[in-house]
Design a protein around this nucleic acid. Structure first.
Lengths: 228, 228
DNA sequence: GATATAATTTAGTCATGCCTAAATTAATTT
DNA sequence: AAATTAATTTAGGCATGACTAAATTATATC
């Protein structure tokens, strides 16, 4: 059985690897709120366990064994998030923090029961894919919101889950995974996006989202639409 | 915030204190599966935090601050046991082990939501009382089953929760907290109890329970009844 | 190609929380 | 009361996983 710290390292390496090949010691240190020297120490340990590939000064990658463990932890995390949200009504912006603690101690049996209760879901409350029991991730194609143009329509696919304030901000506009919206305007010079959110009643709610916010939103089903 | 080890020490001291005043280093060590020398070390640390009273060679007791923390952990544990049992169908004999890991990481918010879901229960699946949010324990009067005599009727109040095999044995007779039974016979020389368990249909199921088992069963509502 | 800067690793420390072995204190016999 | 036995504490070690400071390696600049 791995320590909690080792599991956190593997999970973090996996996530950082997704956004570009090898992971540097410094980036990993910053992500884990730890000093680079501490990272070097842990990587040595993980290497002896054949969970990572690490050449001095060259960055880290996961071995297939390391990746399997990372995906297991990520599955725990995302199933827990969804369970807390659906079964216990824990707010959207705090499920991440709760799951962060629980993911290391939940048993496979309890996890299987939550999975069944939830009907074998494939995405968590933030739209991130839940790996299956065998570590297979089914990821729908999506784009960063910053790539959208005026007049395009789309559906929110996923949002970053780490910043509770950001999540509360999105919730105030009903911008959840699955929410459809249309880009009304994009101000120049990295300016804000003005969007219209599809609502049940006739008139769509408008929202103005700063650039920093749009970097944390990922969308799918992008289509060009007629300007109103 | 306390470490998990410190929380386990406080919880254990509380439980051992219930069965007789001061707790000795050796007993605590055995209970925690740790060497006596390790206990001495931890007690020193807990003493500097004013969580225990400890005089060399004289045993430990909890301070009021230590007791408050112990009761908080016990509340977490018992609510978790009941939640796992009721909400997720985790078997009777494994909820203890699961809760043992979760009790240290569950948040007050999630706990409050489980409490609400369960309808503010007062006992866990083994019949142990759940302390309330303020650490108040309401304990119904009960007796060890070994004090029963032939012909007496009673209701199971509580059973030990630590041994899964014992719990499966009791479950095979439907002996849960709340189950009523009558003592048909007690064999001499510390022999087994033969009991008749009240069932919905006409004929009561009979069970033979060895002495070791009866030490782990606690009963209430004891009454003398006519022998059949 | 030499040098300045940035990133990474090594070396040595510290707190936890466990261990074993030896010393001490308490309790029990004789 | 002295001696044996049992319980407890002290002393010293070890693994984990963090830290700082110094040394090393890589990268960018001139």
């Amino acid at each position: 059985m791995l320590t909690q710290a080792a599991e956190d390292y593997l999970k973090s390496i996996y996530k950082l690897q997704e956004k570009g090949g090898k992971v540097s010691t410094g980036v990993l240190a910053q992500y884990l709120n730890v000093k680079p020297a501490s990272v070097t120490g842990m990587l040595k340990k993980l290497k002896t366990m054949n969970l990572v590939n690490h050449e001095r000064y060259q960055g880290v990658t996961l071995t297939s064994a390391g990746k399997a463990i990372a995906l297991e932890i990520i599955r725990h995390h995302r199933l827990l998030e969804l369970y807390l949200f659906r079964a216990l009504g824990v707010p959207w912006d705090s499920v991440h923090e709760e799951a962060e603690k629980l993911e290391h101690v939940i048993s496979e049996d309890v996890e299987a029961r939550m999975d069944e209760f939830l009907g074998y879901p494939t995405t968590d409350p933030h739209g991130a894919p839940i790996p299956d029991k065998n570590g297979v991730v089914t990821q729908k194609a999506y784009f960063q919101m910053t790539t959208l143009h005026k007049g395009q329509s789309c559906v929110v696919a996923e949002v970053s889950d780490t910043d509770p304030a950001l999540l509360r901000h999105l919730a105030s506009f009903n911008l959840y995974p699955g929410t459809a919206f249309r880009v009304l305007d994009i101000a120049p010079f990295e300016g804000p996006f003005t969007i219209e959110i599809a609502t049940e009643n006739e008139e769509g709610q408008q929202a103005i989202l700063g650039r920093e916010v749009t970097k944390h939103i990922f969308v799918a089903d992008v289509q060009d639409t007629e300007p109103t």
